[in-house]
Design a protein around this nucleic acid. Structure first.
Lengths: 344, 344
DNA sequence: GCGCCACATGGAACGGGTTCCATTACGGCT
DNA sequence: AGCCGTAATGGAACCCGTTCCATGTGGCGC
């Protein structure tokens, strides 16, 4: 039920017929304008656009779907929607799909059973025209699903042969941190996140950051004095910060430089450094990773990941397939960027 | 594009026409069977259902929407989707709506700007046939939205005059905790969660639990020796546990009974009790609140909230409005249930 | 046996887009 | 001026359920 905004009088929601009549053209022309099927004269297009604006017309998405025989919907499968990373990823994805007049349906599937329920379900899986999967390793079930549905698919934050992918180059990220750290005075240290091994997700992130970091440091002729680990949780992060600082104090003392491979770790370290009356960026130089929203405010030197951009480009890969593009699988690699601020 | 499962040969997805032909009836009859419009003879219904099964037919939701002139979609607005509480709430909501052949669109809107963007948006807001709002306080904007769209609305985990509501009775929850705690030996203590005052959300939860608890304890002729607060975060919870235990040790000593008004607090307390070599359920009796998934495993005595049930009933309230029910706003109250386990 | 009514059923019209074919308009060429 | 080809355009047919009206059926009462 639609009601006119101004008058409050009940009136039908305008249809493409109304627009066509208002603009003095045929419905086909209006449809062509809406979908950018370019065979429309400029003047005609303007008339139509004016009529659309005048009537405050919005095309009915359901009618479009049934007429077009497509759902104009993309399924996005990801572990959770509330972390910084996925919020930004969705931002990029949604921007791109919106431009192309596709809807996005988001499925937060945190465990294998939910993922498999999705992949096995007719109703859900057949509904979409395309599939975006973030951070998942490809299971056997996925391959069956893909074969069955023939759905164009793109992987984000993951890599596999034979599928379009967009992923962050964490090795380069670690390398950038390492190269910069090698130029700083004092002993070198690192804290890594130890991820519980879940086959379901791509968990090479921290291994990659580590590989890049160690290689770069070694390449600069320096050595890493100590490496620590922590789980991804504030309490554990604070503990590992304590351990590290105790060790440095007991050893050669300050200054030192620490690559904290996630901003969560870097933040906890920063807290502990301050709590001990030490000066960040002087006694203890800290390089984080992620560029969380608070990082700039707290002056944290860290690696910024172009996550929105990655999402946008992933969507483009999928859209090109939906537009009929054939050819071998493509992979897009994205590089983090070092943001030098106060802490290092 | 739909492909037959068995043969792999490309074939059209079956339509209601196909079903009608297969069953030897008219399309109207098939539609009536699908929608339980009861004026169908039992035998005919069976024939139709068999045809549906044989053809593996699923109705096209988009066609249904455009033909029915409704979206058959309910918008669910909530702060986040990943916490235990909302996962369970959604479970109940989705069960009920699925039974009624309604789809659910979930909008996690954590801040005011996003909520207002939703409420102000034509496209989003008009799309749905009904609205479920969880945990939000009603803003001016909501009232305008409701007036404009005339959408049936139900509030969950919140209460307001003039709107259908379903909410958890935290006062009774606190009362149950208090009554039980009053029967236990030793001094009585409590830890409350201090919520930052956000006008956007209903944050009376802990006030209500406190009111119920204090009243019940007083009613049993006992007194609360000390009350503590903590923010909702593991680190702070652990700290407040330390403070409390220190205080008890310095005072009359053990045993004592603690009502930790959220399982997060109770868990941290349990950790600290164990860390100090004390025996939970003996030296320190702990009553939590929430019945998190791990609570049973760790033997935590706590209050279980029938959250799924609340979601289900909230959906029923909305569905009855969608079915044309008139009449004054109704409120459904749900009571937590005490789960006595090892810790108290 | 006849008339009625309630119930059951078939199917046309409809809803709002997309697609495609037939038609028109127009610029360019002889 | 006359002809042609192409770009632009109108609109019918179509997509797939729902709804509603007209038709058909059976049972019941007299």
């Amino acid at each position: 039920m639609w009601r006119g905004m101004v008058t409050g009088i009940s009136m039908r929601k305008p249809t493409i017929q109304d627009v066509a009549r208002e603009a003095g053209v045929g419905v086909g022309t209006v449809s062509r304008v809406l979908n950018n099927h370019s065979a429309v004269r400029g003047a005609t297009r303007d008339t139509v656009l004016k009529a659309i604006a005048d009537l405050d017309y919005t095309p009915n998405p359901h009618a479009r779907r049934i007429a077009g025989g497509k759902s104009y919907t993309i399924s996005v499968l990801l572990p959770v929607v509330t972390t910084e990373f996925y919020v930004r990823l969705l931002d990029g994805l949604e921007t791109a799909f919106q431009e192309a007049r596709y809807d996005v349906a988001i499925f937060p599937l945190l465990d294998r059973s939910r993922l498999e329920r999705y992949l096995g379900s007719h109703t859900l899986a057949y509904q979409a025209d395309g599939l975006v999967m973030a951070t998942y390793n490809l299971t056997q079930m996925f391959n069956e699903h893909r074969l069955r549905t023939q759905q164009p698919t793109v992987l984000v934050d993951a890599y596999a042969e034979g599928v379009d992918c967009a992923f962050m180059d964490n090795v380069t990220g670690g390398k950038l941190a390492g190269e910069y750290a090698a130029t700083l005075p004092g002993t070198l240290h690192a804290i890594w996140v130890e991820t519980e091994l879940d086959q379901l997700f791509t968990t090479r992130v921290f291994e990659d950051r580590r590989a890049g970091f160690l290689k770069a440091v070694a390449g600069a002729g320096r050595e890493v004095k100590s490496e620590h680990t922590s789980s991804f949780d504030p309490l554990a992060a604070r503990n590992s910060a304590c351990t590290l600082l105790d060790e440095v104090a007991a050893g050669g003392g300050f200054p030192c430089t620490v690559f904290a491979s996630a901003d969560l770790l870097a933040g906890a370290l920063l807290d502990e450094v301050r709590a001990r009356g030490l000066t960040p960026g002087q006694d203890v130089r800290i390089i984080g990773f992620d560029d969380q929203p608070w990082a700039a405010a707290r002056g944290l030197t860290t690696l910024h990941q172009p996550v929105e951009n990655m999402g946008y480009e992933a969507a483009q890969l999928l859209l090109s397939r939906l537009g009929g593009h054939r050819g071998p699988a493509r992979a897009r690699r994205f590089e983090p960027k070092l943001m030098v601020r106060d802490t290092a």
